[in-house]
Design a binder for these strands. Structure first.
Lengths: 144, 144
DNA sequence: GCCTTATAAGTTGATATCAACTCAAATAGC
DNA sequence: GCTATTTGAGTTGATATCAACTTATAAGGC
């Protein structure tokens, strides 16, 4: 081996990029399964939730909130628009922008998803002591 | 709003699934950029590194290590096989399995990627105090 | 007003992600 | 030895992810 196996073990134990990917995938699968009865993925739930606000946001601002590429968000919106859960209307005061909002159907679906999120997240929270949860949140926030 | 805005804020501040996705995306973009001169993504680097071991692993075992769906790994291997970086040979002792190994070209590319990883990861490590880094790693591990 | 620059978003192409299904080989029960 | 079950992996279809490029609108300099 050109690269020593010890180097591989070092990377495996220390790489936060890998650790974040692993955990993100594992948690996504977990919430995907919990939300499956509603036909929502974890990402779609997060997106719908981020649109539940008093004033309709633009695509770019939501992409920033989710730390996601703007074009990824455009793609993610398509299935939700098709299902009539999200409305994207051109902003009359700046015709370059589209303002994203939940339709009544989207609001209703989000409402039915909240108890599922609450239940599933309680199960995740139970995996770690409270103070370790808080430092995990702080660490994730610091790197994103 | 059917769902109170306070609920949205609560989810935004507490959801570890969302936080993990955000951080995973941010770190992936960071390492993607650092590794771009080699034509590797962060995920491809992690995959190549996971194949650098004395005995060639099977697809399922690597998928487990990366907390990734088996079929996702099959898809991820394709571009690496096309580029001649990875070899997937049928295991003679169990013809259902394929054993994954780095080619000499794969080993050489991985070797040239290690210093990039080291430099970039030092920059990430510098964002947090050592003890917070350790609790972050422990928390991520506990949830994946 | 006109031209340049900046900004918001869409499109394209490549890859990533996973569920559901299928295929093939190995193993267990008989 | 033969059938049923289990296990490893591939395929398909839908969605996710991002870079590079393009289009449309707005804002600023003149």
């Amino acid at each position: 081996m050109t690269v020593p196996f010890e180097t591989t073990l070092h990377v495996r134990h220390h790489c936060l990029c890998l650790a974040a990917q692993r955990t993100a995938r594992a948690l996504a699968r977990r919430f995907d399964e919990a939300l499956r009865p509603l036909g929502l993925t974890s990402g779609q739930f997060s997106l719908l939730m981020s649109l539940n606000r008093p004033s309709p946001p633009t695509i770019s601002s939501v992409a920033g909130l989710l730390a996601m590429d703007r074009t990824t968000l455009t793609a993610n919106l398509k299935p939700l628009e098709r299902r009539g859960l999200v409305d994207a209307a051109v902003d009359p005061s700046d015709r370059r922008s589209r303002r994203l909002s939940l339709t009544p159907a989207g609001q209703a679906l989000l409402q039915s998803a909240v108890p599922i999120w609450t239940r599933e997240h309680a199960a995740v929270d139970a995996l770690l002591p409270h103070d370790e949860l808080e430092s995990l949140r702080a660490g994730l926030r610091a790197l994103s």
